[in-house]
Design a binder for these strands. Structure first.
Lengths: 137, 137
DNA sequence: CCTTGACTTAGAGTTTACTCTAACAAATAT
DNA sequence: ATATTTGTTAGAGTAAACTCTAAGTCAAGG
């Protein structure tokens, strides 16, 4: 079990931001110490992995507002047909959003490689300039 | 030769932003029509490529302030030893910044692949949930 | 002729995502 | 015992990067 401070250290997200994410609906309400309403937040390893997943989406350009779609737990035991449909809709939306994001990631990968090539070319160019000037013939 | 509007369409950067980048020192002052001080900006293919290079750096997370290091043209014909040293220093800084940025890009690549894996796993998980519920046994 | 797009400076407004403070309570660590 | 960490709400402040408006000029195209 981790406190908010430990999660902060483990993820590199400040405690402010973790509470902010929670308030914004990116992260589900964590369990509290002794089950008290305002008890200290207790995170387990699953929570940690989830936070890291969410943070990865954020770091790769997903908007906070979109990320909220993943926060509510869709794993409730269903009672009636309406609830089943609601959950199916949420799952559909999540899958679609992930598809869209993966497409984006693929574009980013391409661009990243492109920029890397250009950056390396530029560097070679600057290095050549440096070498042309250094020997001072 | 391209006008600012054409460059805007070709790069996807608004004319506002192009002028803003120029003012901020990310982009060198372009040639003007008829050499007039306030003439219309004229960009050639080399300018276009440079703008795309700069934009690539920006898109991959380099700060605008850092990018300014590339704007001043280091290719002036030198007059004295002091100028040679200045240019060498600029070239050194550019190379260092590019090295640093390429390292960042490598990290980003890794993270991107990591997030892509996680996103695909999550998607499979959601798909499985969807399939478990659909047949309704 | 008149719309469209270009130019200027200066500055205001917007968006996103934090980031922190106040002001106070309660629990934990050294 | 005292310092640190955690908790709350509400709201203010910050930073980066745009984004646009004002208010006026200039030049080319249909």
């Amino acid at each position: 079990m981790y406190s908010i401070g430990e999660i902060s250290k483990l993820t590199g997200i400040s405690a402010y931001t973790l509470r902010y994410y929670e308030k914004m609906g990116l992260l589900p309400n964590p369990y509290r110490l002794d089950g008290k309403q305002n008890g200290i937040r207790q995170y387990n390893d699953q929570d940690l992995r989830f936070i890291q997943f969410i943070y990865g989406l954020k770091q790769t350009g997903m908007k906070l507002k979109d990320i909220t779609l993943f926060a509510e737990d869709g794993c409730l035991l269903t009672q009636n047909d309406q609830q089943i449909e609601d959950i199916q809709e949420i799952l559909h939306k999540r899958i679609e959003l992930l598809n869209k994001h993966v497409n984006l990631l693929e574009q980013q990968l391409e661009q990243l490689e492109n920029v890397m090539t250009l950056a390396n070319e530029k560097r070679s160019f600057y290095l050549a300039m440096l070498n042309d000037r250094l020997p001072n013939p």
